[in-house]
């Protein structure tokens, strides 16, 4: 099984890396480096270095996953696919290829950014792999849900819709009653300014409802879901992980595993109608 996965990983990685898409990803990574780590400007902070290169890794892994999935979803791969005892092997190869490409480009920028960049101590270097690795994995698994290779029916709308709602609720975490109430009040004021009094009243009522509603609970749940990101950012700025923050990358990997399980279930049960 591992041999088959490695063969496919090598094939997808080479095919995408030595294609126009690969070149575009490389150019985008270099542009990112030139913007955020201009060589003439001197040393950025270690914290910024870790966060900015981490963000690049996530972004480039997301795009690489889209590119590899597009390659994997071509008709030319039917003869290879039918040889596999399980379709999950194919999906794992897609994921590994994307992670490999994303990581190569991330390391390239990470290396370039060290030219006249921050001085990293060994303790700091050791905190980097769990941070970047877990975020890259999550980006790759999320991206795979956005592709035609895996999506079935409304699956991507449901997943990304849920994510969007969770993000909105998360932005209101802490005092969601006030946050939502304020948003509806803003809306009410806007309507009253343009003389839409009926809509203004409706928004006013919604503001009153939001103040009393169970949104606090939902927002707190969303806050818990996004806790690993806050914990990791806090750890970066604090210069190291506390015992509870050290769990954050593992929680992200768990999210990735759950999302991969969903992707594998969708992929193994869907009709494969690849494009030429």
């Amino acid at each position: 099984m591992i041999r088959r996965i490695l063969i496919l990983t090598g094939y997808f990685s080479k095919a995408v890396f030595f294609s126009l898409t690969g070149l575009i990803l490389l150019i985008l990574s270099l542009i990112y480096w030139a913007i955020f780590f201009p060589p003439g400007q001197g040393t950025p902070d270690v914290e910024n270095y870790i966060i900015l290169v981490g963000a690049l890794g996530a972004g480039v892994t997301f795009m690489a996953t889209l590119a590899v999935s597009s390659k994997a979803g071509r008709m030319e791969n039917y003869p290879m696919l039918v040889r596999l005892p399980s379709r999950v092997e194919y999906l794992v190869a897609v994921l590994l290829s994307a992670l490999l490409l994303g990581t190569i480009l991330q390391f390239l920028v990470a290396g370039l950014a060290l030219i006249r960049g921050p001085e990293l101590t060994m303790a700091r270097v050791l905190t980097i792999p769990p941070l970047w690795g877990s975020i890259n994995l999550l980006a790759a698994v999320l991206a795979i849900h956005a592709t035609d290779l895996v999506t079935a029916g409304w699956s991507r709308v449901i997943l990304f819709g849920t994510l969007a709602v969770a993000l909105i609720l998360n932005s209101a975490a802490g005092s969601p009653d006030i946050w939502f109430s304020d948003r509806f009040n803003d809306l009410s004021n806007l309507f009253s300014r343009v003389n839409l009094l009926w809509f203004s009243d409706l928004a006013g009522n919604a503001a009153a409802w939001a103040f009393e509603s169970p949104l606090t609970g939902l927002a707190n749940v969303a806050g818990i879901i996004f806790w690993p990101f806050r914990a990791m950012t806090d750890a970066v700025f604090a210069g190291g992980f506390t015992p509870s923050q050290a769990l954050a990358p593992a929680v992200l990997i768990l999210y990735g595993a759950i999302l991969f399980l969903v992707a594998a279930t969708l992929f193994t049960s869907k009709d494969l109608d690849f494009l030429e």
Binding site: R3, R4, I7, L8, Y11, A15, F18, R74, M75, E76, N77, P79, M80, R83, L84, E276
Partner: peptide, 20 residues
């Protein structure tokens, strides 16, 4: 339709690898 950039023997070696 086959992966056009591959050499014939390379492609067949890959298929052979997938067939254990």
């Amino acid at each position: 339709v086959f992966p056009g950039d591959l050499v014939v023997s390379q492609y067949l070696e890959m298929i052979a690898g997938l067939c254990n």
